Amino acid sequence: MGSQKTEFEAEHSSHSKQSRIITKVLSPAVRLLLRSQVQQVDHLDVQISGGDRQILSGYIPQVAISAQNAVYQGLYLTQLEIEGKNIRTNLGGVLRGQPLRLLEPIPVFGEVRLDESDLNASLKSPLLAEALTTLLKSFLPEKSITYEAVHWEQVTIGCDRLIIKGTIASDRQMPLTLDTRLELIDGQTLALKELQIHSDTELFDIDYFQIDLGSEVAIETLTLTSGQLLCCGRINVLP
């Protein structure tokens, strides 16, 4: 009886020791990888699920990540809740001191909430500013403006509508306004409806314009309420 108890205790101790390795190595490696991708984050929580043998072989069945007030490539995210499944990593290399990296693409499911203040702060991001200017150039005469000439300054989120204001620097500062209704057509397609582009001298009315979000994206819901944008869906994260 005492021998059986000793064997059980030894097995339990080995299991605990193995779990401690995962806790001490894998979770910090994931947090380090995520923190290296963001400029700032107020709260970051990582929950890793799976058996010890699976995880130590480099296979992670599931990772759930939540973050608050994160900044990624200049984009401000009020709240982020995502979940990735069937993840293959180089965990053997991590145990030898290498940085964690993905070995295969993974589908990531999640929810992102953006407050109006976050979108306004994100206008300083080249990623968002260039995307807006590219959209604007789709409707203006060729070479009428340059990317450097447009300065985006303010976003207002209404119910199903976005109003984005800025200026165009030419001989003088010309005010500019984009006013549009947003509608999700399918997982990869976003529509701008009743789009109006105002400047000092011109007004463009566009009834309907489609934006292809790409094959790596599958948006399920996109909701705009007063002062807030909520997006749920899937994106494929590539190694």
Score class of each variant (00 low, 15 high):
Ser3Lys: 15
Gln4Asn: 14
Phe8Asn: 11
Phe8Met: 10
His15Glu: 11
Ser16Pro: 04
Gln18Lys: 14
Ile21Asn: 11
Ile21Ser: 06
Val25Ala: 06
Val25Cys: 05
Leu26Ala: 06
Ala29Asn: 07
Val30Cys: 03
Arg31Leu: 03
Leu32Trp: 07
Ser36Arg: 11
Gln37Gly: 05
Gln39Asp: 13
Gln40Phe: 01
Leu44Ile: 10
Val46Phe: 04
Gly51Glu: 13
Asp52Thr: 14
Asn69Phe: 00
Ala70Val: 08
Gly74Val: 05
Leu77Ser: 03
Gln79Phe: 07
Leu80Val: 15
Gly84Tyr: 01
Thr89Phe: 02
Gly92Asn: 12
Arg96Leu: 10
Gly97Trp: 05
Gly97His: 06
Gln98Asn: 09
Pro105Ala: 00
Asp115Glu: 14
Asp115Trp: 03
Asn120Pro: 11
Ala121Asn: 15
Ser122Met: 04
Leu123Asp: 08
Ser125Arg: 07
Pro126Glu: 00
Leu128Val: 15
Glu130Gly: 00
Ala131Val: 01
Thr134Asn: 11
Phe139Arg: 14
Pro141Trp: 01
Lys143Ser: 10
Lys143Trp: 03
Tyr147Arg: 13
Ala149Trp: 01
Val150Ser: 01
His151Arg: 15
Glu153Val: 00
Ile157Asp: 04
Cys159Gln: 14
Ile164Asn: 04
Ser170Thr: 14
Asp171Ile: 12
Leu178Met: 15
Arg181Phe: 00
Leu182Ser: 05
Leu182Glu: 08
Leu182Lys: 08
Glu183Cys: 04
Leu184Asn: 08
Leu184Glu: 07
Ile185Tyr: 09
Asp186Ile: 01
Gly187Gln: 09
Leu190Cys: 10
Ala191Gln: 15
His198Ser: 10
Thr201Ala: 08
Phe204Asp: 07
Asp205Ile: 13
Asp207Trp: 08
Phe209Arg: 12
Gln210Pro: 15
Gln210Gly: 07
Asp212Gly: 05
Ser215Ala: 11
Val217Leu: 08
Glu220Pro: 09
Thr221Leu: 03
Thr223Ala: 04
Leu224Gly: 10
Ser226Asp: 14
Leu230Tyr: 08
Cys232Ser: 09
Ile235Phe: 02
Ile235Asn: 02
